[in-house]
Design a protein around this nucleic acid. Structure first.
Lengths: 349, 349
DNA sequence: GTGGTCTGGTGTAACGATGTACCGAAGATA
DNA sequence: TATCTTCGGTACATCGTTACACCAGACCAC
């Protein structure tokens, strides 16, 4: 039951704790090769593993980072969480999981709790437009990477943003529909609360303009203040939007969704209306979740380079946390990629 | 940058650290009400938060539990992770996330690492038939809850199992098809490596027997040794299985899938063959992931009472960890529920 | 022989919280 | 008056690790 301590190792190897500690902390050159081997063997034999709490107490450093997502139940975040944890493990870090449920207050409480747990690096996937609620903790020294949210002018200085260029993404999606010959396009989203959503809408509008089209068919869900975007709600929203759109006099032939879950809901709504996705109505999603390719028809969507982004998040966090002091923030804006599958095609003439 | 310590609080409040500690640890009755208020105010004003590492070092207890899942990228596990984290938070626990990627060795390494992190409670979602690889750590005092895997005779004594009755679940699914009039049924799975899968197959076979049918149409993927079950692979397997099944002389009219991802793949395969799901071929899944209801057609599937199971996992872990000593294991076998949607109907006559 | 540098170590004071053992004063008991 | 309790509170050793400060001996140069 009692764990092996560094003292026991030291005694068994006939050296001081300092020597064991030195070996453990990359100062092996300070001892004779034979001493080193002896200590290494002892560690192995006794099955010694350093106590993290003691180490953390002493050094003030943890090998744990925090991850705050709206909900890992959402396939997009689940997938990201997996990639991030993988990348973290490569660097010897563990990941503490927090689901904010899109509750700003809960988000803030999580961050503060993580801080008082001694965690100095957090990946925050916030849906809030402003990040000022975390500024105080950042000033105290918390290193924060905002994921899936482009940098904003009023962001805290030290903030690192990692995101795709959302405007470019939806511009790609929209242009794809326009190129196929669609002239009546709609954009389905909830309220444009997050930076992310605003950017995607902007891309949509830009593409329309470039194609010489008007924006009048845009559907933005009114977004009642008590409307919670859960995993399912987002799809339900898409479904309802589809119903509404398709019952108009001049229904759109192409629909750009704020994300894949929403797109899936739209597809369902299209079928409800007795129409076929990919032929009668083209739908394009965003995120390329696992199920986009699995769906029927396979969904045309905008892919985020997740693996790369997860790795970047860890790298940024690691270097900053290990440097210790305040480091100026910066932002990484990656290029999304349009994945054309079968949910889009030229409109019926 | 420097955090407020208990000493600073004590000094500012004009008491000893013991008094502050007493207040913090439920021994408030040992002081005058006015002292108590004074200390409470000081804590508030200084924004004091106890250092977890120090506390853990001293007491040997953590407020963190470990969660080991095959991959949170899989919607089923993502959803479970979310529920578990929620339940944990209610009880004041944090969750450390680990993706085993179905690698036994990785699974073992995670468990050991969690142990040496001072974590004494872990929820393990293992796909391995035997859990003997974790027995040594359990003997050292790790409390383990095995999720989604019924108890086995040779399990470590202290193990707690929380699972639905998988045999009953697939029996429900299979009987549903039989009741609808299907006579040629198939069961699609990868290799029956896990307890879980074996149980589900058993339920399928039982139901067939009860309905007076034979099992000859069972498809069990050969399961090459290097076949990795990832999030997507499982669907791909379903698709291939559907191709194979439907190209036979006497194709099945009803298919029971090992899980929803697999079922989705099967649906895709059915369509590849020019048939329609729900009319030509009935498909029933397992797990009721978010997308089952969203799919087209909405998938008939077997639901696991996740929220309840997550809460039970936390409760078990909490009581055991806080009791400290070894506690005899036990197992919880919940009843699954068949959710009938549109992917199943009577066979074409 | 004196001073300087290098090598291969060791001694020990922290890090911040906990909780047992103790303590003085006031009140109760006898 | 002497003894026992209770109350309100404090002193301090301890958890396991780290890393700064130090040290003895070998070697070298002048």
């Amino acid at each position: 039951m009692a764990e092996v301590t560094i003292q026991q190792v030291a005694k068994a190897a006939g050296v001081s704790t300092s020597t064991v500690s030195n070996l453990l902390n990359g100062r092996a050159h300070r001892m004779l090769p034979e001493t080193r081997v002896r200590v290494e063997n002892t560690i192995e034999q006794l099955g010694y593993r350093p106590n993290r709490a003691a180490r953390q107490l002493r050094t003030g450093r943890t090998q744990t980072i925090g991850l705050v997502v709206p909900s890992v139940g959402n396939p997009f975040w689940g997938s990201f969480a997996r990639q991030l944890e993988s990348a973290a493990l490569e660097e010897g870090y563990h990941v503490l999981l927090c689901n904010s449920e899109r509750d700003p207050d809960r988000e803030r409480r999580y961050i503060e709790e993580l801080w008082s747990d001694g965690i100095r690096g957090v990946v925050l996937c916030s849906s809030l437009p402003s990040l000022e609620h975390v500024a105080p903790v950042m000033q105290r020294g918390l290193h924060l990477v905002a994921f899936d949210r482009a940098a904003q002018a009023d962001d805290p200085e030290a903030l690192v943003s990692i995101s795709i260029d959302n405007a470019v993404g939806s511009q790609l999606a929209t242009a794809h529909l326009a190129d196929l010959g669609h002239r009546r396009l709609a954009f389905v989203s909830g309220a444009l609360g997050s930076v992310n959503r605003k950017d995607r809408y902007r891309g949509f509008a830009n593409a329309l303009e470039q194609a010489g089209l008007s924006v009048d068919k845009t559907i933005l869900w009114p977004g009642a203040s008590d409307w919670r975007f859960g995993d399912v709600e987002s799809a339900e929203l898409g479904r309802r939007a589809a119903h509404e759109l398709l019952s108009s006099d001049t229904p759109p032939t192409g629909i750009v969704a704020i994300n894949d879950m929403c797109a899936l809901g739209i597809c369902r709504g299209v079928r409800d209306a007795g129409l076929e996705v990919g032929t009668d109505v083209s739908v394009v999603g965003f995120d390329d979740i696992v199920l986009a390719d699995l769906y029927d028809p396979p969904l045309t969507t905008v892919r985020q380079p997740m693996t790369e982004m997860a790795a970047a998040a860890i790298t940024e966090l690691k270097t900053r946390v290990e440097a210790g002091g305040p480091t100026p923030g910066r932002s990484l804006l990656l290029r999304p990629e349009l994945v054309v599958r079968s949910s889009t095609s030229a409109p019926r003439s």
